[in-house]
Simulated assay, not measured.
Amino acid sequence: MDSPDDQRKPGLVQRRRQKIADEIARNRRGEYRVPTWVLAVALGVFLAAWIGLIVFS
């Protein structure tokens, strides 16, 4: 018979660790994804260059 502790959902720390472990496993298999912050920085640089081109031309 399962105790109440066995039926509990994994905590935040366990879920986060599993998510990180899954991401590392995906990366080792070659399934790379570009992080959101990299896309946000690229968009910011593009917009700044575009606005700079408009303002300074």
Rank of each mutant, 00 (worst) to 15 (best):
V13P: 00
R29N: 10
W50P: 00
G52M: 03
S57D: 12
T36F: 10
V34K: 13
Q18D: 05
W50R: 04
E31K: 07
K19G: 03
P35M: 05
A40R: 13
I51T: 04
G11C: 02
L43C: 06
K9A: 10
E23T: 11
I24N: 10
A42K: 01
A49K: 10
G30N: 03
S57C: 14
K9I: 07
G11D: 10
R8Q: 15
V13W: 01
W50V: 09
L12F: 09
F56M: 12
L53I: 12
R29M: 10
V41G: 12
R33I: 08
W37G: 06
W37R: 11
L43Q: 09
V55H: 06
T36V: 14
R15M: 03
E31N: 06
D6H: 03
L53W: 12
E31Q: 12
R33M: 09
A25E: 13
A40E: 11
S57A: 14
V38P: 04
A21S: 14
I54N: 14
G30E: 07
V34T: 15
A21E: 14
G44P: 01
A42S: 04
P35S: 10
D5C: 08
D5R: 13
I54R: 14
L43A: 12
Q7A: 06
W37V: 12
G52P: 02
I54K: 09
A48T: 07
G11I: 01
